Simulated assay, not measured.
Amino acid sequence: MLEDYVKPDTVFLQLNVKNRNELFALIAKDLFKKGYVKEGFLDFLTHREDNYPTGLRLESGAVAIPHGDPKFIKKPFVAVVTLEQPIVMQRMDDSNQNLPVDELFVLGLDSGTGHIELLQTIIKLIQQGSFVDQIQATKNEEQVLQVIAETEAAEK
């Protein structure tokens, strides 16, 4: 399921950013140029993350799963993002606690249907520490797609 939404042009590896705002601006600009999102995506993503944080603590680190609103999505996608250095995000289960996040899965779905199922799939995958570690170790987009495909196939 995840492999249906992650495309080579929605994979961002080893980005060097200082904070969440810089990261979101960079990704939103790129996704806009590629025709995935509409104007307003960045503002929505930032506002939503301010009010409903998406950071998750895992056994081997932390990830975040920010998501956009369907009205700002032209083509459905999941962006896989790895960072050179962690940035501070807030925990989903306690917004008063910060997490150092170096991997994100940004959801951009054009309808509400399937959103929960896709989110559950991602959470199930990232709870396997090896999946997160394998994504972090990838060197190119093809390797990311291969890790996703192999992990999902093993789940079936």
Rank of each mutant, 00 (worst) to 15 (best):
F131Y: 02
E59H: 15
V147N: 03
F131P: 00
L45P: 04
E84Y: 04
E150Y: 08
G114W: 01
E150K: 10
G35E: 03
V88E: 08
K18Y: 10
I73W: 06
N140M: 09
R57V: 10
E142Y: 13
P86L: 07
V101A: 05
Y5K: 00
N140V: 12
S95W: 06
A149C: 11
D30M: 09
V144T: 10
E142H: 12
I126D: 00
V147E: 04
G112K: 15
E155I: 10
P70T: 09
D4W: 00
Y52Q: 02
G68T: 13
E49D: 06
Y5D: 01
D94L: 00
K38S: 15
G68P: 04
V17I: 14
M1V: 08
I116Y: 00
A137H: 10
L145W: 01
A154V: 02
D94P: 00
Q136M: 13
D9S: 05
K34P: 08
N96P: 04
K71L: 10
L45F: 03
E3W: 05
Q134R: 15
L13D: 03
V81E: 03
E150H: 07
P70N: 11
V17R: 05
F44S: 14
F12C: 09
K7T: 07
P100W: 01
K18T: 14
G55L: 02
K74V: 12
V81I: 15
H67F: 04
L2V: 01
E3R: 11
L31Y: 05
N51Q: 11
R20M: 12
F41S: 03
Q85M: 12
K156L: 07
L118H: 08
D30V: 08
Q14W: 11
D133R: 14
L2G: 03
D4E: 14
V80F: 02
K139I: 15
L58R: 07
P70V: 09
I27K: 09
Q14V: 04
A79L: 03
E49I: 05
T138G: 12
F24D: 05
Y36K: 07
S95Q: 06
V132L: 04
Q143D: 11
V106K: 08
V80Q: 02
E39W: 07
E3D: 12
Q120N: 11
E141K: 15
A137R: 14
L42W: 11
Q134M: 13
S130Q: 15
A25L: 13
L119M: 04
F24M: 01
A79R: 04
P66T: 06
L83N: 03
A25N: 15
E49W: 01
G40I: 15
K38W: 10
L31Q: 09
V81C: 03
I122P: 00
D4L: 07
V17D: 05
V101T: 06
D69P: 01
E141W: 07
I148L: 02
I135C: 03
K7W: 08
G108W: 05
